[in-house]
């Protein structure tokens, strides 16, 4: 509940404060956001599976974000940045979908 409120507060803060994304972070933020969303959906699924663990969530959240940004950075350095970003987005998208499907099965049994 509190984290959900935190998310909403974060959205409001973002809308009110107009934060500027630092130039150096710009290529990585979109991927990092998607990676974080993946972690969040994974956490909700874990809660429903009854295997949620705070520590695991925090670590997976942070490592997801860092690894995603790292992959994009590496891709940019190797000259395949856009392709690698697409790959990461596809992988994370597939995971989010499967997590959401599991959540849906738990909650609505459909």
């Amino acid at each position: 509940m509190i984290p959900a409120i935190g998310l909403v507060v974060g959205l409001v803060v973002g809308i009110v404060l107009h934060p500027d994304v630092p130039l150096s972070l710009q290529p990585y933020l979109p991927i990092a956001v998607i990676a974080a969303l993946d972690a969040v959906f994974g956490a909700v699924r874990a809660v429903l599976d009854g295997i949620f663990d705070d520590k695991v969530f925090v670590v997976s959240f942070l490592s997801n974000v860092v690894v995603a940004a790292l992959i994009v950075y590496l891709g940019d350095q190797l000259g395949v940045g856009s392709q690698l970003s697409t790959g990461v987005v596809v992988v994370l998208g597939v995971r989010i979908f499967s997590n959401v499907a599991a959540i849906r099965r738990h909650l609505f049994h459909a």
């Binding site: 984290p3 959900a4 935190g6 974060g10 959205l11 973002g14 994304v21 956001v33 925090v58």
Partner: peptide, 20 residues
């Protein structure tokens, strides 16, 4: 403590999403 940490992360995610 962990819950607070998670909340901070969620807050950050919210800000990042809006910013992006």
């Amino acid at each position: 403590k962990a819950n607070a940490l998670i909340t901070v992360l969620a807050l950050g995610l919210g800000v990042a999403m809006v910013a992006q």
